[in-house]
Amino acid sequence: MKVGMKYIHARPIWLRVCMMAFCLMLMGNVWMTTAWAVESLESGSAQKVFDQASLFTESQAEALEERAAQIAEEEQYDIAIVTTNYTGSMVTYEYAESFYENNGIGYGDNKQGFLLLIDMDNRQVYIDEYNAWEENFQLSTRERDAILDVIMEYAYDGDFYGVADSFLDELPQYLNNGISGDADYQYAIEHGEPGQQEVQEPLTFPEAVKESLPLAALTALVIAGITLIILIAVQKTGAKPSSAEYQKGALRIYRRNDTFINTTVTKHKIETSSSSGGGGGGGSSHHGGGHSGGGRSF
């Protein structure tokens, strides 16, 4: 602006007015674009790919943008792909969650959606899920781990476009075919993770038999062992009689007091719990409202 001001002095009035108008337009443009990006439309945020670390080429970013937008439209949940070189004082999951919330990501009233973060600062790939209360949109820990298994291969090779691209491949599959339900939320504490099934091709009979061999062997061992123990025990005869044999009449309860003392309460927050899967550590998230996610280092 200071540069511009120098020229306004020296030029005729019509030029000054033009320049100021141009400056105003520029500012207006920037403001409008930002507003538009931040505004959460019915179909989620307008921008899907935030390549702050410049990991993608223009055409790659465009391709990802298109695909993400298409999936968001079809499936009715938002998808954002974010890369960054610097997370400041935040750890990976904090950055992902705050990015999600501050950039208008999210579909519909619930603002439900997924965010894939490639964090070059902490060298982690993180998948965040927000407000996925709808049955179809819940990702169990197992499913998230399965997605990570696939996309991390690209991260280890340094192919970050591959990470994002394969993420867009994998995510819809799990969400459409996975089984989910209220059971996840009710007993997440006790069981540690929602019990969703992984999607698999149905097994053929010989394959199923091979899979079952070790468990069948172990079970048969236990059954045979118990049977043997019982049979050996039966060799010794003569059991002691029960007390009922000698009891004379009925009990007489002459004093019976059950006194209530107090009630203690414990409170647990129910969330779809998250943890890093095998192969390398990773962040886990119980932060903020409605977020859940998991990640892995590369």
Binding site: R256, N257, T263, T266, K267
Partner: peptide
Amino acid sequence: YEYIYTDHFALD
């Protein structure tokens, strides 16, 4: 949230 209430009694 899930709340677990434990009622304590004295039996005689």
